[in-house]
Computed example of a mutant assay.
Amino acid sequence: MGGETTVSVKKLIVHILDGNLHMPLLSEGEHPEDSEIDEFVQKHVIKILKDEGLKSSSFTGETNRVREICREIAYNNEYFKEGTCELAGIFFGIMKKNADIPSADMLCCLLEMDGIMHLGILKLNYRNSYIHYVTAIDKGAVNSIIKQKTALAPEGQKIEECILINLQNMDISLIEKKYDINGEKAFYISNLFLNCTSSLSGKEKLKIFKKATENFRKEFFEDDFAKTAEIRRAVSDSIDENNGINVIEVAENAFSGNHDLQKSYIEHVERAGLEERIVKVSETAAEKNFRRQKIRTDTGIEINLPVNFYNDAQKVEFINNPDGTISIIIKNISKITDV
C-alpha cells in the first residue's frame, strides 16, 4: 500500500475511550454522511500510508478475537457497528489497566483502497487546548477562556496511533507508540490489542542504520571529519541510485580498497539488527539525515555543508596548517544572507 492509493470511505463510526470514565461511550449508530469528515479521513489515511513509521504486521495465535471480528466484518459489512463496539470495548479494557495510555476518540472506518476493503482504526488522542466561554450574568455576559481537555489533534497534525487491516488477506499496517506497560515501555497495540508480530518500520530501520554507522565511525575514525563526510556521501549516493540505502554499496564506496573494513562494517550493521541489504528511504528523510554534514570548530563556528562539497575544491577547501591547525576556505560565494 502507498503511493497514489485511492481511498473511499464507506462507513464511519466514533467511539469515545475516556480513561476517566468507567466504561467506553459506544456510538449507537454510524456517523452521519459528511463530505468534510470523509475528506478528513481520506487525507489522514494517505498520510499514514506514506509515514516512515508505518510497519507491516500479521495476526498470531490460533484464536484471536480481533482477527475474528475483522473476518466477520469482511463477510458482512452490516456487522461493522457491532464489531467496532466490541473492538472499542477490548481497547478500553487495556487502557483501564494501563493508566499511561492516553484517552482518545476511536474513529473506525470501512475503507475501499484501490478496490480492496480495509478496516481503519484511527486513535485520535486528546490534547489540551483553550477555548472562549461566555457566561450570562445579570448585567450581560462575561467572556472567559477555559481549558478544553478532550480536544482532538488539529487537521494538519499526523495521527500517532492507527491501524489499517486488509479485510481480504488480514494483513495489518500499523503505526504505534510505546507507553508504560507493567513498569516498562512497550507497544501495547500490537502486543495486547491486536496480538500480532511486526516487521521493523522504515523509520526504525533508518534509526538502526544511523546508530550502527555512527558507532562504527567513532570506533575507527573518531576525529576524522573527512571520513565522516565520505561515509555520509556514500550513503547519499546509494540513495540516489537505489531509492534506498544499499549497505554493501555504502561499505564499498566509503571504505574503498579496504576489504577488511568493508566486511567489518557490514557485519556491524547486521549485528545491530538490520538484515536487509537495501533500506528504503524517502527523499525527505535523505535530505534530513544524509545530504548535509554539520561541523563545529573548537572556536565555536558551525558550518552546514552539502556532502558533495567535500571533494569539490571549487566549493570548499580544508587546509592542514604546519602548526597543526586547520583552515577552511569557502569559495565562489556570490551572496551571503542571514538565516
Rank of each mutant, 00 (worst) to 15 (best):
F80K: 01
A151V: 11
K55L: 08
Y133F: 14
N76T: 12
I73H: 07
S103V: 04
N98A: 02
T150N: 11
K47T: 10
C162E: 09
I69S: 07
A99Q: 10
G140R: 03
I94V: 04
K158V: 15
Q42V: 12
L111R: 00
C85Q: 07
K158I: 15
E86A: 03
L110H: 01
L107R: 11
G156F: 11
K96F: 06
G83Y: 05
E86G: 02
Y179L: 04
H118K: 06
I165D: 00
E62A: 08
K47Y: 10
L152Q: 09
D171W: 06
L107C: 14
N98I: 04
C109M: 08
K43E: 14
Y179Q: 04
P102D: 03
G156N: 13
K123H: 05
I159G: 00
A141S: 10
K185L: 14
F59H: 07
K43N: 14
E78W: 07
N77T: 15
L87R: 02
Y179M: 06
N76P: 05
L49V: 01
K139D: 15
V66G: 00
G83L: 04
N169T: 14
Q168W: 13
T63F: 15
C109H: 06
I159T: 08
H118Y: 15
I163G: 07
K147A: 11
D114A: 03
N98K: 06
C108Q: 08
Y75G: 08
N166P: 12
K149N: 12
R71H: 13
L110C: 04
P102V: 00
I137H: 09
I137A: 05
F80V: 03
G89V: 01
F91D: 08
V41W: 02
D100F: 06
N77Y: 14
T135C: 08
I131E: 10
Y79I: 09
K43F: 10
V134A: 11
T84N: 01
L110K: 01
A141R: 12
K81E: 05
G89W: 02
